[in-house]
């Protein structure tokens, strides 16, 4: 869990302690491409460095493969692929964030993890009027308007919805079949 910006965390948590929990959101923020995202910390189980990922044949395209999480086999999704961003090699700062969504445990790859922060619910714009250039707005829960930057709050249940991940698979499969033929 390195890469956490201690300074800004300290600042935000100072403010947070004076507030009640209901008005606060505790988030983990991370970067994919040029954008900054955040998810609710309660959904995050752990953050791991990159490890060997075993590819699973004929799986949805955005699924990178499976990893061994202390004896448990969990799928890993590459967020760059999920967001249809330009693919890059995984770098030193790449991390696998392990989350629990709707009873399923899965990991997703991000370019880097920034910090754990608390923000006031008031500064989150629920229905985003602006959408990120590359991210479909349906899995955006809201935009956190920080003083110096914007945070995209992700709705993990929608992001990793089984049907949707499979739907992506079918188009991929089609392509693969055409290639084979």
């Amino acid at each position: 869990m390195s890469q956490v910006n201690n300074e800004s965390q300290a600042k935000t948590s100072d403010i947070a302690d004076n507030m009640t929990d209901e008005s606060q959101l505790q988030l983990v923020s991370f970067g994919v491409g040029s954008e900054e995202f955040a998810v609710n910390i309660l959904q995050v189980q752990e953050i791991n460095r990159m490890m060997t990922i075993t590819k699973v044949p004929e799986s949805p395209d955005c699924v990178e493969g499976v990893i061994n999480l202390r004896g448990r086999i969990i799928p890993v999704v590459d967020l760059r692929k999920r967001f249809d961003m330009e693919l890059t090699e995984h770098v030193e700062s790449s991390r696998i964030i392990v989350v629990e969504v709707d009873g399923r445990v899965l990991g997703f790859i991000v370019d880097c993890v920034h910090e754990v922060l608390r923000i006031d619910r008031n500064i989150v714009e629920a229905t985003p009027s602006i959408t990120s250039s590359s991210v479909d707005s349906s899995y955006i829960m809201g935009i956190g308007k920080l003083e110096d930057r914007l945070l995209i709050l992700l709705d993990l249940s929608r992001l990793f919805n089984l049907e949707e991940l499979r739907a992506i698979e079918s188009t991929v499969k089609h392509g693969a079949a055409r290639n084979a033929a």
Partner: peptide
């Protein structure tokens, strides 16, 4: 070890197992 139902569509693998080196074999 069972695989996530995300992989139900796969026609090639039925499960996974952990290798000696901690890696995963399908």
């Amino acid at each position: 070890k069972p695989l996530d139902d995300l992989f139900d569509g796969s026609n090639a693998v039925s499960g996974a197992t952990v290798r000696e080196d901690g890696g995963v074999s399908l």
